[in-house]
Design a protein around this nucleic acid. Structure first.
Lengths: 244, 244
DNA sequence: ATTATAATGCGTATTTATTACACAATGCAA
DNA sequence: TTGCATTGTGTAATAAATACGCATTATAAT
């Protein structure tokens, strides 16, 4: 086992999209009393780990992602570093750390990333044990400062999506307009008129209609689209308009 | 002297606005050969320091800012953490570290902030020695990975300004429309029609005209305005429009 | 003084984008 | 075979962004 750097960690907020809902992948954390078997801690945490000696922080994030989802080359964005002295000071977190990781530093600074995955490609059951998806608006009890991390990750993702078409990372390669629309509605927390959304998307040269039809749980078959990152990069404008 | 945490630091990109140009505050770094007096290193760096034992990272950034500009309560935004293993590995940086800070860790992770200051309130000569302002598009030779930090800070600032009226932090309390316009042009790297800018700004309820007139280096006196953060917070909309 | 000039104040058309809503077609379920 | 949720494609009304016109002001140069 490689040596870890005890006062620096990375945490990953892994977003997926399923059931027309934005979801976060969480890992169960349980601590039982050695003697009585009583459950002392039962909650969830993000995926995270310390960085290793000689490891770039971005590589540490990719490693965590690979370990917990089996996926590589996925969308990953560093959004904030949490370095408050009290961030691990809640009693249950102290109990957990003292029991499980007595060698870890008292002041751990955590560099946080969020990632966007096609949840059909991750099967939590087959991957890391105790991992499962939770809708972002129905989170279970969370350890450490991970609730704050998730809500900040969501804020960054929302801001990002207003400015850049990152949502496609959450969908299968081929998707329908209604899937795309509900994804936008879920992340941006807004209702969009279907017909205006259609008009807006048809202006986006990088969303390319296919000849195929898909039925995404609906009655009528809908046209399938793909996203071309390449076309987007080539046609993106950098002159915008002030949003206020 | 308080103990430092040797593998975590903060760096601050301090932006000011002067001469219709966005400026960065830099500190001179010089190393002379003990015997020959030859200049081994002569370049500039950002303001930075290690975090102290028991110190929040945000507080470390505020401390650095206070130390180097004398200012408190100024706009400060964490934008990225740099943690590549090779970020301090250039020969001149190694020479500097080995000579000046032999105890510092080999892998230092730096949490970066940018801040926006009213440059009329900072007088580099009276503050930290060897500090001076440089236009962002005419930077001198820089140490460590600080050039990358500045260009990333500028990118974050630009994105921020498209979405939120943070530019006022760089101006005196009272300013004219032409000052504001050239600030927007400098940061957004775009030309704006003066009359359309006037129209746009007059829609912003949080930019409040005063009865006073100012002459900002121009022939004709121009009307002065103030920015009300309070009015902005109360009138901001969170439904935006996709920028693509 | 007078004049040229650069900056300012305040417009009006034109084009483009956003919003609101209409209606026919499809294909599964009852 | 019919009902109906979903999909495909509009059009009209409104709002915003862009391009540009022109008189006014105060200073610097003559």
């Amino acid at each position: 086992m490689e040596a870890i750097i005890s006062n620096i960690s990375v945490d990953c907020v892994i977003f997926g999209f399923d059931n027309n809902t934005l979801q976060v992948l969480l890992t169960k954390r349980e601590l039982k009393d050695r003697e009585t078997g009583e459950l002392l801690i039962a909650d969830y945490t993000l995926q995270g780990h310390h960085i290793l000696v000689g490891e770039n922080i971005d590589d540490a994030a990719k490693r965590v992602l690979k370990d917990k989802t089996g996926l590589e080359n996925i969308y990953l964005e560093q959004f904030q570093t949490f370095g408050d002295i009290n961030r691990l000071r809640r009693p249950k977190d102290q109990l957990w750390l003292k029991t499980m990781y007595p060698m870890v530093s008292d002041h751990v600074v955590s560099v946080c990333y969020y990632s966007l995955v096609d949840s059909t490609k991750v099967n939590p059951d087959l991957q890391h044990p105790y991992s499962s998806w939770f809708p972002v608006d129905q989170l279970p009890e969370l350890g450490f400062d991970h609730e704050e991390m998730i809500s900040m990750a969501l804020e960054y993702l929302r801001n990002k999506l207003w400015r850049e078409p990152v949502g496609f990372e959450l969908l299968p390669d081929k998707f329908t307009l209604s899937q795309l629309q509900s994804l936008y509605e879920a992340i941006l927390n807004t209702e969009i008129d279907r017909r205006n959304f259609w008009k807006k998307v048809s202006q986006m040269k990088f969303v390319i209609p296919l000849d195929e039809k898909h039925k995404a749980g609906s009655r009528k078959k809908a046209q399938a689209f793909i996203f071309s990152k390449d076309v987007y990069e080539r046609t993106r404008k950098d002159k915008l308009t002030l949003s206020y």
